[in-house]
Computed example of a mutant assay.
Amino acid sequence: MTIQSEDTLAALANGSTKDALVEETIRLANLISGQTPYDGTFSQRIPGLSVSRYSRVNEDYVKSFDMPSMIIVAQGAKTVTVRQEVYRFNQSQILMLPVALPIAMKVTHATYTEPYLSVKLVLDPHKIAEMALRVYPQGVPAATKWSAGYILSADLGMMNAATRLVQCLTHTGDAELLAPLVMDEILIRVLRSPIGSWMAELGFAGSEAHLVTKAIAWLRNHFSDPVKVAELAEMVHMSESTFRVHFKSMTSMSPLQYQKALRLHEARRLMVSESLDATTACYLVGYASPSQFSRDYSRFFGSPPKRDVVGLRPQVTADSNLPLE
Rank of each mutant, 00 (worst) to 15 (best):
K63C: 02
T111D: 03
T79N: 12
S153C: 05
T81F: 09
I71H: 03
I103S: 06
T108G: 01
H109Y: 06
L28E: 04
F42W: 14
A143D: 10
E24K: 10
A129P: 01
L123A: 04
G34M: 05
I72F: 13
P141H: 07
A77E: 11
V73S: 05
P137Q: 11
S153R: 07
Y150R: 01
L117D: 02
A104E: 03
S52Q: 12
Y116Q: 08
E85R: 15
M105W: 13
Q91V: 13
L117R: 09
P98M: 02
L133V: 11
A142P: 02
P125A: 06
E59A: 10
S43H: 15
R134Y: 11
V135H: 04
A74D: 07
A104K: 07
I103A: 07
R45Q: 15
K78H: 04
E23G: 05
Q75E: 09
Q35P: 07
F65D: 00
G139D: 02
D124H: 06
T41G: 10
I103D: 06
A142K: 13
A77R: 07
D39M: 09
I46M: 09
A143M: 07
A110G: 05
I32E: 11
R45T: 15
L156E: 02
Q84V: 10
S33P: 07
K78F: 02
Q138M: 12
S55P: 06
I103M: 10
Q44F: 12
L101E: 05
N30W: 10
Q84T: 14
L97S: 01
P37T: 03
S33R: 15
S52T: 15
Y61A: 08
R27P: 04
K120N: 13
A29D: 07
V80K: 04
V107W: 05
Y112S: 15
S55V: 06
V80Q: 05
T113C: 13
I26A: 14
L133T: 09
G40N: 02
V86R: 15
I103Q: 01
M131F: 08
L121F: 11
D60I: 04
L95D: 02
I46C: 06
I103Y: 03
L97N: 04
D155E: 00
D39N: 14
V122L: 10
M105F: 14
T113D: 14
H126W: 11
M67L: 14
N58A: 08
Q91L: 13
K63L: 10
M70F: 08
I71Q: 08
Y116C: 06
G157Q: 14
V57R: 02
V140Q: 00
